[in-house]
Amino acid sequence: MSAISRSREKWVLLFPAILVLSLITVLPFLQTVWTSFTDAEITAREQQVNWIGLENYIWALTDPDFLEALGRTMYFTVVSVGLEGVLGIAVALLLNQKFRGRWFLRVIIILPWAVPTIVNAVAWRLIYHPDYGALNSLLLQLGFIDSYTSWLGDPDRALNMVILADVWKNFPLVAYIALAAMQTIPGDLLKAAAIEGAGAWKRFHSITLPWIIGPMLVVLILRTIEAFRVFDIIYVMTRGGPSDGTKTASFYVYQEYFSYLRSGSGASYAVVVAGISAVLILAYYAGIRRDQRGA
């Protein structure tokens, strides 16, 4: 088969997927981009939609509250994905050891991830509850605190508490991928290294980590994209409070659209968030390609 017909065959086979993706992703995205350059609003009346150029973007990027929210979202993303990565690999290492009841642990560890985000958020809100939350009761009985504390009521602390809830929900996914990758490491390789005198850390650092880094990058990309557009867990746990301390960028998109009814402006906020996500994805891809060349 010639190279040209092979290439055509690829396009023919890809066509259905491209068509479906265009309809459900590309077209709405282009429409959002177009809307972001207009003064469109949500209204049941006839409206004259005007092209206003970059005005929405200038507005969004000079909105000190939105810029603060972008910084907050970045913090949320870096800390939660970072913790999920470290915790996920650590748990995977543990689950990769031979011990009695391992199969049971491997099954139940996925539970937090299987629970819907909304349910997880409600559960953690109850755990953090200032009056009858389990966290207060536990820490008080262990003697770590003297009186009940308001975990989600303190603006400096609330975001970290939400991050903890998010990490709890999502680290099992990272752990599973890491575990699957670790199981493909030939046992001989690790044994040989041990015989040669490599300690546990050396074996992890020189064999395990390089072996699993590809799959880890993929799962961390997925988590980064999700974390950067975080909305549901915050909507349920704090609704952006206290004093906007947990209001993330996606919350502003939602607010511009559905609370303030400015669809044009809301679209520009959404495009900014999508643009930053795209930069993050490209950075990861660059990381993966470098890794593949290195391997």
Binding site: G241, S243, Q255
Partner: peptide
């Protein structure tokens, strides 16, 4: 929502 944010900040 503007008042909510700033009042809440002040109460905190």
């Amino acid at each position: 929502s503007i008042l909510q944010k700033h009042l809440h900040g002040s109460l905190l």
